[in-house]
Design a protein around this nucleic acid. Structure first.
Length: 260
DNA sequence: ATGCCGGGCGAAGCCCGA
């Protein structure tokens, strides 16, 4: 089964792009981020026509996450627990049936956190603490689990074209990277990294400053697998060419193949 | 180059992203 994650940067603006990729890549499960669509404005039709069931956590203008699945979905969580008034649509989780077993998937849009000397960075770190706490609970189920999405964290200097250029950025702060490690060290496997030894492979290129033609990218979209999911990992990839297409998102899809 | 592009909102510039 192929699972994937794609920050579309507006579902409305990216719909032709997304449909084309869905037809080519044929993923069984897709986590979307930055849909910028409410449940009312979500373009269900064209996606359902390709055979996907939908789980949506929408919001107007900003954020918005969703899960598409060929197999039936059962939503288990909308919004990350521990919010205390946090109304950003950044987390949705569901159970997907796979034959006689289940895979739990979450679509994650982790806060950007810039600028670092603002409450936005605090929000990012607190959000990561909430994610860590929730993930601990999920791991206790000892079942196949995939936390996928735009983590807005560059894990290591090997995941950015120029570490110096990102020194002051929230995506590359020691605190951000430390909390991502704290999450991973609970027992998760970075699916793409587990399958690839090469460095400087990216999932995001800024629209500005010719970042794409210069390959000035960063790797911030990740698929984290529980031990029971990692045991089934057969491959992982980044659909890099999508970035060079007409009206692309600034992110590209990442995927993992799990054997069930 | 903390704003070079692109999207939303809404009808023009401003907010936001990473």
């Amino acid at each position: 089964m192929k699972i994937a994650s794609f920050n579309v940067n507006s579902l409305k603006a990216r719909l032709p792009n997304l449909i084309e990729w869905l037809k080519e890549a044929g993923p069984d499960v897709v986590c979307l981020q930055e849909t910028k669509s409410t449940d009312d404005t979500f373009p269900r039709g064209p996606i359902e026509d390709l055979g996907y069931n939908l789980a949506i956590h929408g919001q107007k203008t900003y954020n918005g996450v969703a899960i598409l699945s060929r197999a039936p979905l059962e939503v288990t969580q909308i919004g990350l627990p521990g919010g205390d008034g946090d109304d950003h649509a950044r987390y949705i989780e569901a159970l997907v049936s796979v034959g006689d077993t289940v895979l739990r998937v979450a679509s994650i849009y982790l806060p950007n956190g810039n600028p670092v000397d603002s409450e936005k960075f605090t929000y990012k770190l607190v959000w990561m603490d909430r994610l860590i706490a929730h993930a601990k609970g999920l791991l206790a189920y000892e079942e196949p689990l995939a936390l996928m999405g735009d983590y807005n964290v560059i894990p290591t200097p090997d995941d950015v074209y120029d570490p110096k250029a990102w020194e002051g950025d929230a995506l590359f702060q020691p605190e951000s990277r430390g909390k991502l490690r704290e999450l991973i060290y609970l027992g998760f496997t970075d699916a793409w990294r587990a399958c690839h030894a090469e460095t400087h492979r990216y999932t995001f290129w800024d629209y500005q400053a010719g970042s794409w033609p210069k390959n000035n990218g960063i790797r911030i979209d990740h698929i984290l697998l529980s031990p029971q999911a990692a045991d089934r990992l057969k491959g992982s990839g980044i659909d890099r060419d999508i970035r060079g297409r007409e009206k692309p998102s600034d992110h590209v899809p990442i995927w993992a193949e799990l054997e069930f």
